[in-house]
Simulated scan of single mutants.
Amino acid sequence: MNVTRFDAAPDYFPDNHFLMRCVRLQGHEAGPAESLWIGVSTIEPGGYTSLSASAVEKHYVVLTGELTVRTDEGAVLLRVNDSCRLAPGERRALQNLSSAPVSVLLAMPLV
């Protein structure tokens, strides 16, 4: 078993993420994993990512707050416990348009 305490989770710094703190809970520098890694992003009010795509699918689950996820097809507001899946190659932008921080769980394949 590999346990990662949230307060000790290692930070990582993805490109084009603004006013965000990203930590890994499992996989990569957080410990061994065979198929996926899991992280949490805390997005401050006004925080966002640029509209971009990934070669692998991504799954998001909102833990606290409200998150706007924008794709080429439009935007959707996710609230606590809502989730979405983004297909490989699907462009997305995350935005916190609220006045409170939002926390989002991210799961994606190891690459």
Rank of each mutant, 00 (worst) to 15 (best):
D7R: 09
I38S: 03
L78M: 09
G27C: 06
T68D: 01
D82P: 10
N16S: 12
L77S: 10
P101D: 15
D11S: 08
D72S: 12
A33L: 02
T4H: 05
D82F: 03
E90L: 08
E44C: 01
P14T: 04
R70M: 10
A53Q: 12
L67M: 12
A107N: 07
E34Y: 01
Y12N: 04
V111S: 15
V62N: 07
A107V: 15
Y60S: 04
G39P: 03
L77H: 02
P88N: 10
A33Y: 00
V61L: 15
G46L: 07
L63T: 03
V76C: 03
L106I: 15
A93T: 08
A9E: 06
H17L: 00
G31H: 07
A55V: 04
D11M: 05
R5E: 14
L86K: 03
A55R: 09
G74P: 00
V40I: 15
K58G: 10
N2Y: 11
K58N: 11
E73N: 11
W37C: 08
L36V: 14
N2P: 00
S98H: 06
G31D: 01
E57K: 05
D15E: 14
D11T: 04
H28L: 12
A107S: 14
E66I: 09
L86T: 06
A107F: 11
V62K: 09
S98I: 04
Y48Q: 06
L105P: 03
V61C: 14
V23A: 03
T49Y: 04
S52E: 15
D11Y: 14
M1I: 08
E44Q: 15
R79L: 08
E44F: 00
R70V: 12
L110Y: 01
Q95L: 14
R21V: 02
C84V: 08
P101Y: 01
L106C: 13
D72C: 04
